[in-house]
């Protein structure tokens, strides 16, 4: 395994934000995992900014060679209360039969803006999971783009967004099924308080030769205030004829019967709401395999809902 600093690499794109990243970036990391290596402990990556009016472009490259396995935990955090803009781009190359889990924890201050793009290129028999956990930031945009270039690839995405005040989180996902016998699975849970707003745009493309694709996408949202909102847009573009693709979207509030049930057991109304909200998010949180990330998510959720509860039993 090798870990080093910024390295230049190509990204063919017309995207203005990525072009901005390419032309200005001087920081970032380069990580290569050798073949047949299983990295036992997760690798933690921290992007901390402390300067006033931070304007940063990070450019990162991860290459995982055949039969390797690795997990990451990435945190992007602005410690200064002044305004901040981070444009982060990560390219992940997954060689044959690799397994990778990438956990992103985005808990930014209310003046921080983040655009985070991850492009994943998968070869045969590889599995890549990306979990996006958003707990704060005035504007947070995640672009996850998966390209499946070999048989039997699997791409999994889990997302939990918990927003309050005027925060906005936007999750854009794109899975390009270019090869047959592959799978993709997306589960995004959004919890919106106050005046917060969420966006989910999930696109699944199935190319003409990509038969026997199994793609699933779900986006469930809890609007916990009158003024919060969510725009949800699933997009399926299918050119093969023997595939299974489905998507579902729900928008709702907490169940009154369940709330009364909990209150009748002595649990206060705010705590009962928090427990039900946690229950709503837990399906996505439980898919994370790194225990510390799970614990931290539960803690941040309780903090965000303003209750002193320990969800970890």
């Amino acid at each position: 395994m090798s870990i080093s600093g910024f390295s230049e690499f190509e990204s063919n794109t017309n995207d203005s934000i990525l072009n901005l990243n390419k032309s200005l970036s001087q920081n970032g990391f380069t990580i290569s995992i050798d073949k047949n290596t299983v990295v036992e402990s997760p690798i933690e990556i921290l992007f901390i900014s402390t300067t006033e009016t931070n304007f940063s472009q990070y450019r990162n490259l991860i290459s995982i060679a055949e039969n390797a396995e690795v997990k990451f935990v990435e945190r992007i955090q602005n410690l200064n209360n002044s305004s901040s803009f981070v444009n982060n781009f990560t390219r992940i190359n997954c060689d044959k039969n690799t397994k990778i889990e990438y956990n992103k924890i985005q808990n930014n201050t209310s003046e921080s803006q983040l655009i985070d793009t991850v492009n994943v290129y998968q070869e045969q028999d590889s599995t890549c999971d990306i979990n996006t956990l958003i707990f704060g930031g005035s504007f947070t945009r995640n672009n996850l783009n998966f390209e499946q270039n070999g048989f039997n690839c699997e791409s999994n995405m889990n997302g939990v967004s918990v927003l309050d005040n005027n925060q906005l989180a936007d999750n854009h996902t794109f899975v390009d099924h270019k090869s047959a016998n592959c799978r993709s699975n997306e589960m995004y849970k959004g919890i919106y308080l106050d005046n917060s707003k969420g966006v989910f745009n999930g696109k699944i493309m199935v190319r003409p030769d990509a038969q026997k694709i199994d793609a699933f996408q779900s986006n469930n949202n809890l609007l916990l205030s009158e003024n919060s909102s969510i725009d949800s847009k699933p997009q399926l573009e299918i050119y093969a004829d023997d595939v299974k693709c489905s998507h579902g979207c729900t928008i709702g509030q907490l169940d009154d019967d369940a709330l009364f049930y909990m209150r009748s057991r002595g649990i206060g109304i705010e705590e009962a709401k928090a427990v039900l909200t946690y229950a709503f998010a837990s399906e996505a949180i439980e898919n994370i395999s790194v225990d510390q990330v799970k614990l931290l998510s539960k803690k941040l959720l309780a903090q965000k809902l303003n209750v002193e509860l320990d969800f970890s039993v």
Binding site: A279, F280, A281
Partner: peptide, 13 residues
């Protein structure tokens, strides 16, 4: 109540 285990529910209560 999906997502909450019996033990967690009772512990909270």
């Amino acid at each position: 109540i999906p997502g909450i285990s019996v033990s967690n529910f009772i512990k909270t209560s």
